[in-house]
Amino acid sequence: MVSQSQTPISSFVPRLPIRHLLNPLPSQSPSDTGLPSQWEVRHSNSKNLPYYFNASTKESRWEPPPGTDPEKIKTYMALHHSTPANPSASGAAKDGKIRAAHLLVKHRDSRRPSSWKEPEIRRTKEEALEILRGYERRIKGGEVSLGDLATSESDCSSARKKGDLGFFGRGDMQKEFEQAAFALKPGEVSQVVDTASGVHLIERLE
């Protein structure tokens, strides 16, 4: 996510009993998730997002650990952790704020070259641009919506919400992202937007 902090998960919710914070999903196995042994997907109540937890070492992280099968974890997370965006969850839009969704493709020079589906992203920026332009053609050609494609392909944790970032105002996002998002009309999709996080397509939501 464009504005997401890298603070360790354990620092978000230190006062709550552990049973309320670490909620494993049922019927998980390494063959289902592609995660290494002892790792599983859990849910952060404070962030309302899934994360990865090692039951043996008690380590928790937002990105999958080394040794994860990228295709298996991508499929698992898209099936079990992608839910329709819920506008009411963010509350009513405040003055000067807009709501947008995005599809992010990271590359090896992104400020965090890892994502929920890849522990280490090695593609070049040129390769990321080529991938994103392919997505752009499909979206603008009417083949698929940005939200549906973001569910499985975006390198942002907002993929679980079809890329929906909720409402935000000026100064909340990176400058290039903010300028592109605020320039859109509701329903419009941007051209490629380049930020320190990677390359994006942005859709202004109603």
Rank of each mutant, 00 (worst) to 15 (best):
T68G: 00
T68K: 00
T68E: 00
P70F: 04
P70N: 08
K72P: 01
I73Y: 02
K74Y: 03
K74F: 02
Y76H: 13
M77E: 02
A78W: 06
H80I: 02
H80T: 11
S82T: 15
S82K: 07
T83A: 12
P84K: 12
P84Y: 05
P84W: 04
A85R: 12
S88L: 14
S88A: 15
S88F: 05
A93Q: 07
K94H: 08
D95W: 00
H102F: 07
H102V: 04
K106P: 03
H107M: 01
R108P: 03
R111Q: 11
R111Y: 08
S114C: 09
S114R: 08
W116R: 12
W116C: 04
K117Y: 07
E118K: 01
E120G: 03
E120C: 06
I121K: 07
R122Y: 01
R123T: 12
R123V: 13
T124A: 13
T124N: 13
T124K: 13
K125W: 06
K125F: 10
A128C: 12
E130F: 06
I131Y: 09
L132Q: 11
R133G: 06
Y135D: 12
K140E: 09
G141T: 00
G142W: 02
E143R: 01
E143H: 04
V144M: 13
V144D: 02
S145W: 02
S145R: 04
L146F: 06
L149A: 15
T151R: 15
S152H: 10
S152L: 14
E153D: 12
S154Y: 02
C156M: 09
S157H: 08
A159I: 01
R160K: 08
K161T: 08
K161I: 04
K162L: 14
G163N: 12
G163S: 11
L165N: 13
G166V: 07
G166P: 06
F168K: 07
F168N: 01
R170H: 12
G171N: 09
G171S: 09
D172P: 11
D172S: 14
D172L: 09
M173N: 09
Q174N: 08
K175G: 05
